[in-house]
Amino acid sequence: MSTRTEPVWMRRLLIGAALTFLMLFLFLPLSAVFLNGLGKGIAVYFQALTEPNALAAIRLTVVTALIAVPLNLLFGIAASWAIAKFDFWGKDLLITLIDLPLSVSPVISGLIYILLFGAQGPFAPWLMEHGIKIIFAPPAIILATIFVTFPIVARELIPVMKAQGNDEEEAAMTLGASGFQTFWRVTLPNIKWGLLYGVILSNARAMGEFGAVSVVSGHIRGQTNTLPLHIEILYNEYNFTAAFAAASLLAMLAIVTLVLKSIIEFKYRAELRAAVKTENHK
């Protein structure tokens, strides 16, 4: 017997216990979503997904993600460039502040925008005067979504960029490349998997966010309902089949995300390894 592992019976026992737990807590819920959604047949399932309120919810969810994810992508690139490539005073504080949204309850994430833009907020008179509606309207939904997905891309990119160092960028500069050329031709190709990873995770979170969006949405059917909010309403009306049908869409998104994530992780590890290898070539 190897000194580095346990006896066979022990290994089997541990694997068995781990799988049982995962089965009960992860696999069972995932399959329940689909089985419940399809419980009354395929026709009912599709009908639930194509009724106008469901379509409106899907549309708002997609639009929200389409705005929030690219903005956070740009921010993530800027933040990781500054943090990974340069040294400056207050860097640790900046990193802590960027991570902040991850440790704030979703409900509080929504609440702060109500305090800022709501009827009792500092901008209320101005907004009223100009007829701009932020709270209980799509702008607040988008803002809250940006807040909760804010750090994701930056958190993925910072370690990759750090690991890759500044050598290649500096080489490009000495060869006459401008800042933009250096970024576009040298940096971007080296971080593409990390970038994609961050985008996919942000997208999943943006489309699925519930708590923060729930606070600021106002729950107006067909107007300010995202897909998760639509599911809540259906469920609370005891329309379980329709609720699970809508939920199955998001569950599919989750599965696609997990599959892509596994694929990218594979490529991404190679990217990181390559970086580490060239760094520690000595």
């Binding site: 995932l30 809540e232 998001l250 994530k261």
Partner: peptide, 11 residues
């Protein structure tokens, strides 16, 4: 991480 919390909740 990937499954929206509302979906997890109702399930």
């Amino acid at each position: 991480f990937a499954l929206p919390t509302a979906v997890a909740g109702i399930t």
